[in-house]
Design a protein around this nucleic acid. Structure first.
Lengths: 235, 235
DNA sequence: TTTTTTAATTGTCAATTTTACACTTAACTT
DNA sequence: AAGTTAAGTGTAAAATTGACAATTAAAAAA
């Protein structure tokens, strides 16, 4: 069959913005680039798309290789395709944003990549257009989290309402009333209260909750106004 | 500088899902493919990304060539990258969805492309994975239009509230109360009531409105619950 | 053992938003 | 002049949201 002639061919890469939450601050996982140019500089974790895979499969592969985690929450963010974005060769990159439970991250696996968690508030200069990717991912995370319960992906299996609230407060940079917060969250009706308590952070201890996975998945797309005035969010 | 070796290079295309509204029904603009394979079959309008442009610029160019319109509402939808999606050569496609005022569309320009508007409810088999693209675009349109005032992009400069309401009812397949609808829409505070009336559809005539462009752009990202129960929406 | 300290838990009322619902009006047609 | 058609408009009940503070559990200190 005739090929398409005289058209530009490009390398296609994926880059992953990996968010984590350490209980206090939002983090992103960065790696030190292993190849020229910009070798040794901080970068998003990425890789080239191979012959037998699509971009999402490539992102899953790359994430698994870096973090040791399968079943990562993963969402396509955007395509970055400026002709000059990679000085070596024309390379289109599909950026994915992913949320992981920072505790599941296995450091030993990643030593190969010189990976490190940085505060989302303060991270180093990144190669190419990766800073732009991070900014866009941050915007999308805020937007989506304002309506959909995806932040659970950042927490361990068992978590407390105060922990969850801290996460929302960190991401949206607001203080929330805990009575209203718990009412709103519990009205979603997919949290299961456990009998066990978390005792690290208070004398009284806070009850652990876990997700009712079935209900969580079933209602994931339902729209809940978790954050009061989301006017200033990215769309 | 050393090149990246042994990596797959691909063609990169853009495909545009072009939505229009004829006052009654949602339409998509399709073209008859001009090259092999699948020559003559219905397809989204698309084209290959050129050396000096990024994917968005390619989409703008393609849309301009087909419709004669510049300044089209355009949004990245998703990447389609299955290895076998184009049988000729590995081709990644970035799908964009675009909203146009169907009246601005200049048919003569497009005769070259054998373009035709089809009802979104009933359109022909499309090449490759284009049907999947349309479905995804439809989902995203519904999702976004439930919160943001983007449907104005489908209407002419002057439009009436009943026309606008018909559009919402068509897209969400619901009937809405006109009192509640106009209250909600006018509370957005970026419609300007004109003195002129539209008299085609009723004896009394309906007042035309136009957008206050400044306020419209300023508040575009603000979140307004236009549709009651958007639970069943795609996210 | 008692008191103190700390953070978790829980409820109510006011304000706002949303929903349900029906009559009047303008202008053309008969 | 009467009839027809769709546009335009208001109000009350219900649901949701936002503001606000006292009580409780459990460890630590006295």
């Amino acid at each position: 069959m005739t090929k398409y002639h005289h058209q530009v061919k490009m390398l296609v890469a994926v880059d992953c913005i990996i968010f984590g939450f350490d209980g206090k601050n939002m983090k992103i996982l960065l790696v030190q680039r292993a190849l020229q140019p910009e070798i040794g500089n901080w970068s998003l974790m990425g890789g080239f798309v191979q012959a037998a895979e699509n971009t999402e499969q490539a992102a899953v592969r790359v994430l698994q290789k870096l973090t040791g985690i399968t079943n990562i929450y993963l969402e396509e963010l955007a395509v970055f395709s400026n002709p000059e974005r990679d000085p070596v060769e024309r390379t289109l990159s599909v950026a994915y944003f992913s949320l992981i439970d920072i505790n599941k991250y296995e450091k030993q696996i990643t030593n190969d990549f010189h990976a490190e968690w940085f505060p989302l508030q303060k991270y180093p200069r990144l190669i190419f257009d990766h800073t732009e990717m991070v900014k866009k991912a941050k915007g999308k995370l805020r937007y989506k989290a304002a309506f959909h319960p995806l932040l659970f992906e950042l927490l361990p299996e068992k978590f407390t309402l105060p922990q969850l609230q801290s996460l929302y407060e960190e991401i949206f940079d607001v203080e929330m009333d805990k009575r209203n917060f718990s009412r709103k969250i519990l009205s979603m009706d997919f949290l299961i209260k456990l009998t066990e308590k978390e005792k690290e952070n208070s004398k009284k201890g806070a009850y652990y909750y876990k997700l009712d996975k079935k209900k969580y998945k079933a209602n994931f797309h339902s729209v809940l106004k978790i954050i009061p005035n989301p006017d200033t969010l990215y769309a």
